[in-house]
Amino acid sequence: MPKTIIRAENIHKTYHMSKTNEVHALQGINLEVMEGDFSAIIGPSGCGKSTLMQILGLLDRPDSGRLYINDVDTSTMKERQAVKFRANTIGFIFQGFNLLPALTALENVMLAGRYGGLNRVEKKKRARRLLEMMGLAERLHHTPNELSGGQQQRVAIARALINSPSLILADEPTGELDSETSLEIIELLKELNEKNNQTFVLVTHNLEVANSCKKIIHLKDGKNTSA
């Protein structure tokens, strides 16, 4: 019986853009993600994909509803606990890679290790190993602007993995890559999923990418239509 990684119950989120303009981004989301899942969240623009992602990643809080990650109720967490929990349990991969431009590939990966509380030696060792695993052994000391898009995303993946998170959230991980590189990245993620039984949730526009996922969550108007 696989473990439940995410259990979301009736999650609501409304953005107050101005006094008269409210955006009901999420209107009662229910979903469950099991350990080892490789799920895609898809849906039209404005359906609440990004909001859901942010809430799953504890970057934002729902207005109502409950969110359990690793069976921990995160909806009642204090901000400080949430920060710590995020650092140790959740890995992020962003659409725009979001590497820090002043840091080398190795330092970018190590930075996440620092926030995850790894000691100096350990974070360096892990960062190096992960980058080698990503095929970037020759690029450790390059800064992001010296790397191609695919390479940058690999660094970002290594960064997401350094604290051995039980959940990896990827927001449009292939959004800025050409189709060939996109496939490579998705293959890489799948490999990680299969080899390490790590849980992935992807947000994507790309149907091809979505169809290669084990599970698809359709979002429409802030509700999931199937799970």
Partner: peptide, 16 residues
Amino acid sequence: TKEIGVRKALGASPSS
């Protein structure tokens, strides 16, 4: 700003 957002997403505490 974006860099700060990324750091926070990676688990940086406000104090760090």
